[in-house]
Design a protein around this nucleic acid. Structure first.
Lengths: 348, 348
DNA sequence: GTGAAAGCGCTAACAA
DNA sequence: TTGTTAGCGCTTTCAC
């Protein structure tokens, strides 16, 4: 079926080693021979077998990517970015999903390792990151991305989560909001909690009450009653911040169900800047994670390690933008349009 | 670094062949020996090398997936579904993006083939599907998904595009709409044109004017002026149907810019039922492609071929749902709330 | 039921 | 610069 290096060699009248050299470019080959080899190869439809090549050479041109969920556009965008960078350097990527479960994470990691990849990119499904030990032992370079547990001291790429939270909160404080609800799919992840910390710190600095933190899960029907309490009745809040992309949907859906109008009755800050957010009405003010830059940083670090870099941990922390659009406005009753609370001097 | 079968064999006091048999289960091994082997393997952290295994055995447990764009959630959801099914049978998947370009498609296909995968899933980037010949020649099983050119006669999984179009159009006709605009990122793809045909056929059956077809591209700023013409001024339409997920955004964004209210002034049918569509206000009436069922059908077919099925082409055409929500309503001036046009007897 | 040995397609040493 | 050869880790005969 698939043609091997030997047949190409025979047809071109050279040795297999020479064919190998033509394709790998590792050793110089006389132009005339090289031409004949290429010709023979294309006539036969030859494509070098990477599995065999990697077995013999001991070095792989494949990297594994393990994410918690392939249905989450943030993760898949990251994969898209990674794929582009990897391909530029001749690497292929093999993907696996842990489906958010620790045991599947371990199992999928094993499967990925079975390909003896040159490196791995892992977005852990919990802060435990039980697979760290396994990865360290195996000795394959790996980058932990997005969800970087505080206990982890190796190579990592993430965003500055505290800063994200601070910015979102200050934007809303500046508009005059005083009653905050913060929603996230889960509060068990370190990166999410850091975002909360940023928000809490900002509110504290302005001497406002701490925000209400809500874990909305991943189901509209579970999220709804929890959010509804703060959209109707006495505990009503005016500012809602989502800390995950699902939480964004939960907040919007719940506001819709409660018949609340955005932004005149409640302001909403979404998470992850997907293209639908600018298309809908009102367009969503949102926290934009620099997905492309993250993919690039991950690849840069991984690539360096694959190339043999052996110095201490490489850590990248990227800054997110707050994209202000139509879903945030002064709270009802504040007609001035101007900030109700002054930002103390020395801070933006 | 990574431990090999030999070391496990030595530690367990057996031959490499026996270790292989324990892991593959192909030949019976005495329980006592098997236990010792497993023990030794886990102590050493052994994981069989799949590249080596595939090289020797000549059969791969990896499938390649080639899509036009890893940033399109429809494609990535399909990958998610595929990944789940493949993993259940012990297959890993390697992904590549053609970035919508024919030459990249060919190049990425070559790279995928270089892993000697057991099978391939391809979503072509154009109707030419120039790679078909290459794939046929190589003889590796492959399934063409989603975009199935009329010229292609092999295994394929797609949706019934004509039916999609018909349903969307009839829904709007039933509400009383008479002036239709149909938007798609491109009209060059067969599947998109089939959707148009379904719409046109429905309008013709009700003796309405044919719809205006608009190619919106993949950029808001290019889409906007084209759609704007039909949202403002004399050529105004009341019914907008998106035939791609980007077109959905373009229509919403453009309606927003034109200050049109949905659904009181214009009705919108979106494409692909993503979760944000039910969260926004108004919730979007949308054409839902059965992504999970598609992934399952693709895997079922591919799996059969990998297993050696050699009968004629396997073709699956799945039916889409029209999910009716708040973005479609009778056109302005139609206060009855009842259909303006009667559906002829004998048809739903 | 198990071991010994050959060989999958390729590349790296070594010769020439 | 090129050919020859050994062997990567595994599976699969073929003996026993």
């Amino acid at each position: 079926m698939m043609v091997s290096i030997k047949e190409v060699a025979k047809r071109a009248g050279v040795s297999p080693g020479t064919v190998s050299n033509v394709f790998s470019g590792k050793r110089a080959v006389k132009p005339e021979l090289a031409r004949r080899v290429r010709e023979a190869a294309s006539e036969l439809g030859y494509e070098p077998d990477r599995a065999a090549s990697q077995l013999r050479a001991g070095k792989a041109r494949i990297v594994g990517v393990l994410v918690p969920d392939l249905n989450n556009p943030f993760f898949t965008s990251l994969i898209a970015s990674l794929e582009a960078h990897a391909r530029n350097e001749g690497f292929d990527i093999i993907v696996a999903s842990s489906h958010g479960k620790v045991d599947e994470e371990a199992a999928r990691l094993g499967a990925l390792l079975a390909w003896r990849p040159a490196g791995l990119v892992v977005i852990p499904c919990t802060d435990d990151f039980v697979s760290e030990e396994l990865l360290e032992r195996v000795g394959i370079p790996f980058i932990v991305a997005d969800r970087v547990p505080s206990s982890f001291a190796g190579d990592a790429v993430s965003v500055d989560n505290v800063e994200i939270g601070r910015r979102a909160a200050e934007h809303l404080i500046g508009l005059g909001h005083r009653h905050f609800v913060v929603a996230a799919s889960t509060l068990k992840l370190q990166n999410i909690r850091e975002r909360c910390q940023g928000i809490e710190a900002a509110l504290m600095r302005f001497e406002l009450d701490p925000p209400t933190l809500i874990e909305v899960g991943l189901d509209f029907d579970i999220a709804r009653p929890q959010l509804g309490v703060f959209m109707e009745g006495p505990q009503q809040a005016t500012a809602f911040i989502a800390l995950t992309n699902f939480a964004t949907l939960a907040i919007l859906w719940s506001a819709h169900k409660s018949g609340l109008s955005i932004p005149s009755e409640v302001s909403v800050v979404g998470f992850d800047d997907f293209s639908w957010m600018q298309a809908v009405s009102p367009a969503l003010t949102a926290i934009r994670q620099p997905v492309e830059a993250m993919g690039q940083a991950i690849w840069k670090q991984l690539s360096a390690r694959i190339g043999g870099a052996s110095h201490g941990p490489m850590r990248t922390k990227l800054i997110c933008d707050l994209v202000v659009r139509g879903s945030t406005a002064p709270p009802p009753g504040d007609n001035s349009g101007k900030p109700r609370v002054r930002v103390p001097a020395g801070r933006a």
